[in-house]
């Protein structure tokens, strides 16, 4: 049994915000989790905590039953990857070379990227619709293109657990659907899992198998999507009246016009 990426009695705080108290939940291969919550509630901090970038106040994050705080970074990077909310490229580099940095944790000190790595990078660029951009400079990319490149780099890194901080930011409708579908497909194949901070409830309703909600003051609630998304829970979450509609693909939610 794979215990996945799990939180045990996790307590996370940042700058006066109590993000979660006694958090117990696990992201297992096959899962696609949505992380929902209002602005400034600590979604990014929780993702960073799971990636080992932020130290929890107490409790542990476990990667297959081992505390990630005790694992070397390089090993961690082969299993856990994160799409950050913003990616800024200061130094010029080509799109292909940037995508190839995803192979970094898989290569030894003196090792160079081989044929297989190159194929992976090219495949990932094709998958995010950047096939013709390989030789382009990263500093000249649009917001959406830079976002897709960052996602392609994560695909090249190929961790079992993908943490995604607002993966659909800057993306047009077609690419939003495309990328969410790709993440769901990877999870369904059974080897990967994802946890994505989202603001679009309906993307969560359509693509995610599980939902975790952060209410503030350390309160949280996690479970399978159909059990989690309801008018009352979303109203409590966002402090805004929400109306449920039935669509052919299942329930959808919209803010009730005030």
């Amino acid at each position: 049994m794979n215990n996945g990426l799990a939180c045990s009695a996790l307590d996370v705080r940042i700058a006066g915000v109590h993000v979660v108290k006694d958090l117990e939940f696990a992201v297992r291969p096959g899962d696609f989790w949505a992380l929902l919550g209002p602005n400034g509630i600590g979604k990014t901090t929780l993702l960073k905590c799971l990636a080992g970038l932020h130290e929890p106040g107490s409790g542990e994050v476990l990667l297959e039953s081992r505390n990630i705080a005790e694992l070397p970074r390089k090993l961690l990077a082969r299993h856990i990857g994160m799409l950050q909310q913003h990616t800024v490229y200061v130094f010029d580099s080509s799109v292909l070379q940037t995508a190839l940095t995803g192979r970094h944790p898989h290569l030894g000190y003196w090792e160079r990227e081989g044929h297989r790595d190159l194929k992976m990078a090219e495949g990932a660029l094709r998958a995010v619709d950047l096939a013709g951009f390989a030789g382009r400079s990263v500093t000249g990319l649009s917001g959406g293109e830079a976002r897709r490149l960052a996602f392609a780099t994560l695909l090249v890194q190929d961790p079992e657990f993908m943490l995604l901080d607002e993966p659909t930011n800057h993306l047009d409708l077609r690419h939003q659907v495309h990328i969410m579908g790709m993440i769901r497909e990877r999870a369904r194949q059974g080897r990967h899992a994802a946890l994505a901070a989202l603001h679009d409830i309906n993307l969560a309703a359509r693509y995610c198998s599980h939902v975790i909600m952060l209410f503030g003051d350390g309160q949280w609630c996690a479970g399978a999507t159909p059990d989690m998304l309801s008018e009352s829970s979303l109203q409590r979450l966002y402090g805004c009246p929400v109306e449920r509609f039935e669509s052919s693909g299942g329930p959808r939610f919209h803010p009730r016009a005030g």
């Binding site: 080992g52 990857g81 800024v88 200061v90 890194q157």
Partner: peptide
Amino acid sequence: NVLAMGETTARLLG
């Protein structure tokens, strides 16, 4: 190369 992309990115890449 990885460090030039920022400290957080570098940590995430191991």
